[in-house]
Structures are given as structure tokens and as C-alpha cells.
């Protein structure tokens, strides 16, 4: 498959009117800017949990997936092992592989561009891209959202980390509660789907029961098994698999990058 032409040329040769592309760009920019602002919370929480400013910034550059970053920082800050922190972070990143399946067909990229597209494959770029009416608009939505979120997210992380560094004792400022609130905010839009809500309740109970029993960090990993069991048990609820980007697109800004 040939590398697709530069975006402007593609827009001109596309049969669809230019409007969907412009609409996609506008939507992408607003989602990108709004999402990037969460990076401030992440940077502050990372430093509050014992990461250096440089380490906080490295999570945004290298992991670049909000939920995974909050998980890594949370488990490390709670005294969990490296393995537990990496496991929690990585399990949350599994959904990005599913997103790659959705965006791959309309991106149609190879080589270096595909390596770059992979790094930008996150909740927001997938949701905005998949929600557009034409392939050209989908590509615009994906790339503009991905690049905007990446830029803003990293700058905001740096700002938040410097801010957190200046604040001192995180508990005095309630930053430990802010971390809990961040996870709840990421979870919130998913609770609308009934099976996901049921899984969340059971996973929360499993984690609560395991905290005093197993090493720090493992309750979170064990809770992932609840999702696996629910997924394997299958169609019992009659609900669709969920998690399609076009459904998520309307859900606003609940997701981290």
C-alpha cells in the first residue's frame, strides 16, 4: 500500500466536502487542549508520590497514556514494588492495542509514520478519529488530536511537576485525595455501561478485601482478573462488548490521555 499523500493534498482530492475535515480539526483541537490540562494533575501527583520532576516528565513522554501513568505513580507512591507498578500500568494500556485495530484501517500508514501513529494511539485520538464521517476527516481527527494532546500533556506534566515540587507535603494539600479523585474521574464515564459498572463494583470489593492480605500493588492486579473472568463468561448479559470508539466519542472529557 502506498504511503498516503500529505493531508492537504488528500483533502483536495477527496470527494467529500472540506467541511468534515475542518470540523474534525476543530473537534480535535478542543479535545486536545482540554485533555492536556489533566497533565497538570498528573505532574503534581507524580512528584507528590516521590517521583522526580524528570521522572514525572518521562512518564508522559514514554508511557503517554494517562490511566497507565496515574496507575504507575499511584502504586509506586503507595509503596508497591516495581513489578506491581509496571503490571498495573501495563494492564491499563491493553486497551490501546484494541484502539490500534480501529484506527489502523483508516490511517493506512507504514514505516516511520506507523511507529509515530502507534505512540499517539490513545483514548482521545481514537475517539475523535473514529467519530468522523470520511477517512480524510478521520485521519485529520486522529493526527491533530494525537499531536495536540501529546504536546499539551507533556508541557502540562512539567508545569504540574514543578508546582508539586514547590508545594511540599502532599497530604497537607490533599493531593492524596486528588489522586483517588483522578481515578474516579477516569472510571466515571465507563460506569454508564451496565456490565462495566458491575465489573467495577466487584473489582473494588476484591481490592478492598486483598489490601490487608497481599503485598502493596497486587490488589489492583488481582482486580484485573475480574474483568478477564467477566469477559470470558461472555454474552450472558446480552450486552455488546462495548468500548467502541464511536460510542466513546460523545462521552466528553472523562478519559485521561
Amino acid at each position: 500500500m502506498p504511503a498516503h499523500p500529505p493531508r492537504t493534498a488528500a483533502a483536495r482530492t477527496d470527494q467529500a466536502p472540506a467541511d468534515p475535515v475542518r470540523a474534525a480539526r476543530r473537534q480535535a483541537l478542543s479535545v486536545g487542549v482540554a485533555t492536556a490540562l489533566y497533565g497538570v494533575s498528573l505532574g503534581a501527583l507524580a512528584v507528590a508520590n516521590g517521583l522526580s520532576v524528570l521522572q514525572a516528565c518521562a512518564t508522559s513522554l514514554l508511557i503517554f497514556s494517562g490511566g497507565s501513568q496515574f496507575a504507575l505513580v499511584g502504586v509506586l507512591g503507595g509503596g508497591g514494588s516495581v513489578a506491581a507498578a509496571v503490571a498495573a500500568s501495563s494492564l491499563l494500556g491493553v486497551r490501546n492495542a484494541l484502539y490500534g485495530l480501529q484506527v489502523g484501517p483508516f490511517l493506512r500508514v507504514r514505516g516511520a509514520r506507523r511507529l509515530l501513529a502507534a505512540h499517539l494511539t490513545i483514548d482521545e485520538s481514537t475517539a475523535v478519529g473514529a467519530a468522523q464521517p470520511t477517512d480524510t476527516a478521520r485521519r485529520t481527527g486522529f493526527w491533530v488530536t494525537g499531536v495536540t494532546v501529546f504536546t499539551g500533556w507533556n508541557l502540562a506534566t512539567l508545569a504540574g511537576a514543578l508546582l508539586g515540587d514547590a508545594l511540599g507535603d502532599p497530604r497537607r494539600w490533599g493531593l492524596d485525595a486528588a489522586a483517588a479523585a483522578a481515578f474516579l474521574a477516569l472510571l466515571w464515564p465507563r460506569l454508564r455501561q451496565r456490565q462495566a459498572a458491575a465489573v467495577a463494583v466487584v473489582a473494588a470489593l476484591v481490592a478492598l478485601l486483598l489490601v490487608p492480605v497481599v503485598p502493596v500493588g497486587l490488589p489492583v492486579v488481582a482486580a484485573a482478573l475480574v474483568a478477564v473472568v467477566a469477559g470470558l463468561r461472555g454474552e450472558r448479559s446480552g450486552a455488546p462488548a462495548g468500548g467502541r470508539a464511536d460510542e466513546r466519542a460523545g462521552e466528553g472529557t472523562g478519559e485521561g490521555a
Binding site: 492524596d176 466487584v202 490488589p219 482486580a223 474483568a227 478477564v228
Partner: peptide
């Protein structure tokens, strides 16, 4: 089934993280 498990994973992990945090 893999898809469904993958789609449910974030809800389970985030709920557990809320509790632990």
C-alpha cells in the same frame, strides 16, 4: 471474548485503584 475482557479491563483496574488510593 478477548475483546470483551479487554474492554472491561479499564473499569476493573480503575475501580481497584480508587479503592486502594
Amino acid at each position: 471474548r478477548a475483546r470483551r475482557a479487554g474492554a472491561l479491563l479499564p473499569a476493573a483496574l480503575l475501580a481497584a485503584l480508587v479503592v486502594v488510593q
